[in-house]
Design a protein around this nucleic acid. Structure first.
Length: 124
DNA sequence: GCAATGACGCTCT
DNA sequence: CAGAGCGCCATTG
């Protein structure tokens, strides 16, 4: 069925869910970023699949947006867009006039070694 | 097993 | 900056 995972949940999905669960409050990550952290670099689509397959309130799925900072809605539940935006705003995530998340300020930066690289956001 | 579809992403126009 | 095209992989008919 379209709502996979209802009975079968590939380990890959579990990996993705685990990453999503680690996203801090007030921070957002893109599907590609989640896939990458889950060890599935380049497979952003799988991240989307995993989220769709997971239970609605089993994890902070609302903190996952696409690379453009826009909200990707599930065709089976278009109303999720409203829920997502409300939850994010409630966490302090700001949206611009176009309805996009300000990625430069809210993109989640998991600790990797924080040696060099780190353009650091304009922090307003 | 092939063809179509999908909570995506990157590149080119 | 917007739209179209192509690539990735898993699920479904």
């Amino acid at each position: 069925m379209k709502h996979a995972a209802s009975v079968t949940a590939p380990n890959k999905y579990v990996l993705i869910w685990d990453v999503v669960r680690r996203i801090p409050r007030g921070r957002v990550a893109s599907y590609g970023q989640v896939a990458d952290l889950a060890g599935l670099a380049g497979h952003a689509r799988l991240a989307g699949y995993a989220l769709h397959a997971s239970a609605a309130d089993a994890l902070p799925w609302h903190r996952v947006v696409n690379a453009e900072g826009r909200l990707s809605l599930a065709r089976t539940d278009p109303s999720s867009g409203m829920t997502q935006r409300l939850r994010l705003e409630r966490e302090g995530v700001r949206f611009d006039a176009r309805g996009r998340v300000d990625m430069t300020r809210h993109r989640w930066r998991p600790v990797v070694g924080q040696s060099a690289r780190r353009p650091l956001e304009p922090s307003r």
